[in-house]
């Protein structure tokens, strides 16, 4: 089933969606076996996803899984390209000591993948966890709501801990889909067994406009509601509330800028600049005295 408008709004607001135990053991175990046999293929950047992986391979079965396929189609549409994939191994004690490391290897610094990216659309990063990840295994650390910050890759490595940071702890077969800009890093594995994760980055080949099931979009979603002095409880699935969810690490002023940037992204995905959430962009667009330049001359609007 494709994502709903609410799901996509949550992706826009938080920069990720997590789907626990989405893939069955048969595919999960096949991936571990292929990893151990060293048969995970190399893929040329820009290869269409449908031709990237051998038929019947674990990664082909992953993206062909109906639920995974629907998530991909909802966010980057049909026929995306494989930007790259990467196999992540975080060594557990048994393998670590084999390489001569007595202590757990330190966690990875915070970073944003690739490089400075100012596009309005986004690439989709799929992180797949083919086995259970327990707290001691150093599951991926990521920061909800960080995806729209324009930073330069590892320049954020100075930060060690950020309020609201999350560590992936999940059952086998969990799929995490992320906006390419989300801040993240691998954790430190202090457990006995090695942690596996594979990441696949996908580029859209079609405009990312209403690729999801938008049948839940209502006229009421476009209506403004009382703000600041607002004492009436709002339903959990209220689109404005989803898009204007605060994160505990936002500075007092930049949290509001995050709302503005989320609404701009959501407008882009809707293909509709008339949408606003809690008036954040409407206020900035009010300019009664602006002068309109036209071929027939300048006039007041």
């Amino acid at each position: 089933m494709k994502l709903s408008t609410r799901d996509v709004a949550q992706f826009v607001a938080r920069g990720y969606l997590q789907f626990p135990a989405l893939t069955p053991d048969a595919i999960n175990e096949q991936y571990i076996d292929e990893m151990n046999r060293g048969v995970i293929p190399e893929v040329a950047a820009g290869t269409p996803l449908g031709r990237a992986y051998p038929d019947g391979s674990a990664l082909q079965r992953l993206y062909s899984h109906p639920d995974v396929a629907d998530v991909i189609a909802s966010l980057v549409g049909p026929d995306p390209l494989v930007d790259h994939h990467f196999v992540h191994l975080t060594l557990g004690e048994a393998q670590r000591t084999g390489f001569g490391f007595r202590e757990p290897l330190p966690s990875q610094h915070w970073h944003q993948d690739s490089t400075i990216d100012t596009r309005q659309g986004f690439d989709l990063q799929i992180m797949w966890y083919p086995h259970e990840v327990t707290p001691d295994m150093g599951g991926t650390r990521f920061l909800p709501g960080s995806h729209l910050r324009i930073v330069s890759e590892a320049a954020i490595g100075r930060y060690q801990n950020i309020r609201g940071q999350r560590h992936v702890v999940c059952p086998a077969g969990t799929v995490l889909v992320l906006h390419h800009g989300i801040w993240h890093g691998g954790g430190s594995n202090s457990g006995p067994t090695t942690r596996h994760m594979v990441k696949i980055r996908l580029n859209a080949t079609v405009p990312q406009i209403r690729l999801w099931d938008d049948s839940d979009l209502r006229d009421g979603d476009y209506e403004q509601r009382p703000i600041f002095w607002a004492t009436t409880a709002r339903p959990d699935d209220d689109l404005h509330s989803i898009l204007c969810e605060m994160q505990p690490w936002y500075e007092a002023d930049t949290g509001r800028l995050e709302f503005i940037n989320r609404i701009r992204l959501f407008r882009h995905l809707l293909g509709d600049d008339s949408f606003d959430a809690d008036y954040w962009l409407s206020r900035l667009e009010i300019n009664p005295g602006r002068r309109h330049e036209s071929a027939s001359g300048t006039r007041e609007l």
């Binding site: 330190p106 966690s107 490595g157 801990n161 560590h167 505990p248």
Partner: peptide
């Protein structure tokens, strides 16, 4: 909202996410 600590005395090691 965020914090980091480095110890030049060598008593404590720190890392991201700890």
């Amino acid at each position: 909202v965020a914090w980091s600590f480095w110890d030049g005395s060598g008593q404590r090691d720190t890392m991201a996410g700890d």
